[in-house]
């Protein structure tokens, strides 16, 4: 006999497999942009970009697109991450690292 915790564990484990079959994420809404000019790259923008993509996948979030862009003009504050949510003001995060990237995605989930 399973407990509620067991059921939730099965659910988490199986969701990772089943999500492959979900085509409801066809329309993307949230756009995350990472500055990847020379300044950004040297400050670790690539790690941030990868962390964002990984977190979107592990959290199984639909409707998020992560893309790169060039220098955003805040070289001293790199890596810079911009988050565009439709109908909301654009948020710019500065000096982002992998941990902060996870936090950014967590905040999106909550909202």
């Amino acid at each position: 006999m399973k407990s509620i915790a067991d059921i939730n564990e099965i659910r988490a484990k199986m969701q990772a497999q089943i999500c492959l079959r979900d085509n409801s994420d066809m329309e993307k809404e949230i756009h995350i942009i990472v500055g990847m000019g020379t300044c950004g790259l040297n400050a670790g923008a690539r790690t941030v970009f990868n962390a964002l993509v990984d977190e979107v996948e592990t959290k199984n979030i639909k409707g998020v697109l992560v893309t790169r862009t060039g220098c955003m003009g805040n070289c001293a504050d790199e890596p810079v991450v911009e988050v565009h949510v439709p109908g909301k003001e654009t948020v710019k995060y500065t000096k982002v690292n992998a941990e902060k990237a996870v936090e950014i995605i967590n905040n999106l989930v909550k909202a």
């Binding site: 509620i4 059921i7 099965i10 484990k13 199986m14 497999q17 089943i18």
Partner: peptide, 14 residues
């Protein structure tokens, strides 16, 4: 049954 559970199955009962 695990695939049903993955699609939020038995969450309503819980």
């Amino acid at each position: 049954i695990d695939e049903y559970i993955a699609r939020d199955g038995y969450q309503a009962l819980i």
